[in-house]
Amino acid sequence: MKKCLAIISVAMLIVILTACSSDDAPSNNASGDWEPEKAIEMVAPAGAGGGWDTTARMATKVFNEAGIIEEDIGVVNKPGGGGAVGWAYVAGFDGSNHNLFVASPPIILVPLNGQSEYGYDDFTPLANVIADYGAFAVRADAPWDSLNDLFEDMKEDPESIAVVGTSSPGSMDHIQFVQIAKAAGVDVTKIKYVTDPDGVGLTQLLNGSVEVFSTGVAETVEQVKAGTIKVLGITAEERLTGETLKDFPTAIEQGIDASFVNWRGFFGPPNMDEAAIAYYEKKFKELSDSEEFGAIRDQYGWDEMYMDSAEYKAFLDEQYETIGALLDELGLGQ
């Protein structure tokens, strides 16, 4: 026992020493009226390893390593309720200037589905940073070559075509498909949607259990290259750039006037100070423009999509309207 203790104490001493040496004193740079006075907490309202967690960890990494923000930024995971637990947690920091969180369309969808008492308008939108898009894929040997082919068949015989996604009805994978299908004139109440929460939707597509896979653009690239699936359409406004990606037709160019952005940005708690908002806007712009973050964006296949606080707010209001109407039509809104 004694020996054990001795080893532990030595180990701890080393740990403490190394930990202390990395603590730098915050330096002052005269870039604005407000500066963080202590470490900033960045909440990822999900567990480790997901999209929110990755975005949060990558952003904080660039913030600190590129010296954009000198203060320490710690990522805190608050998983649960598809985000609801994390939002309730951040809402508790009313007026704080040192608490941020990463958000994307679920902050509009989850409250609309009646699963969170807090929605986007309870928080302070700071800046949007990236955009990602949805893709609709079918097997390479499927009879459809365009979204219109697919939607024609869906209008005639909705029972024969099943769509699979990772999230439940009323959330992203479902809504992005419904939004495009609706614009093409499909009766959205007849769409056969299957949820595969274990993330094996692609398997179900490849083995022929389902006909269509509604997912993110990045998830389809390798399979398209290998010739196992084809992407009938993506939800972006314009064609994307990059190898393979540039070959994916948008819904708009196929004459279906609809798009869906999987945006990702950062929010603060309710009632954040104006000066702090201005500070973060500026810092997120620097982040978005930095080479390091650009490299990360390319790696994950994300698009750049910067919006400042005011633009972001207007964008969110519009999204809320559109999606709210769609959910009402499906009878899912609450």
């Binding site: 203790l5 740990v15 710690g74 990522v75």
Partner: peptide, 24 residues
């Protein structure tokens, strides 16, 4: 011994989690 363990153990766990594993 009890006091030593009850102070050192949490301290060790805390530093390991927050500093090395980045788990708050």
């Amino acid at each position: 011994t009890n006091a030593l363990v009850s102070i050192l153990f949490p301290l060790f766990m805390y530093i390991m989690f927050t500093k090395f594993l980045q788990i708050n």
